[in-house]
Design a protein around this nucleic acid. Sequence first.
DNA 1: CGTGTGACCGGCG
DNA 2: ACGCCGGCCACAC
Length: 130
Amino acid sequence: MKKLKNNLLKKPAEKPGTLNKEYSFFEDVYGVVRQIPKGRVTSYGAIANYLGTKLSARMVGWAMNAAHSAKLKVPAHRVVNRNGMLSGKAHFATPTLMEELLAKEKIIVEEDTIISFEKLFWDPAKELGL
DNA sequence: CGTGTGACCGGCG
DNA sequence: ACGCCGGCCACAC
């Protein structure tokens, strides 16, 4: 249980009203997603929950939508919905890319759904500590 | 500054 | 079991 969490979680909060373009809610999401261990997966809701906005898992999805714009690569393929379905695969370069990336990590996908999703599930709030 | 929308989630008919 | 609807937050127009 490493306590390397807070390195990426500091809130922008520099100045109220001064929005930092370099930093945003997206960066928070990316920070968490990048910490997902290889071969593990998590859900939008789990990330949202970890960031404190659990009722707004949609925002996480929105962030992933812009993940391709992130400077650093974001392993968006490790993020699925709570059913373990590859809901975002359509947003990858190719329809099969997400599944292939997961396959490289020994994650088996069938019918757009991750097998043994519950076992592979990685909860940031639990693993990183809340 | 108002409105729409989204790779979600959970509840209710 | 299945489908619809509302909510929540940030961002683009």
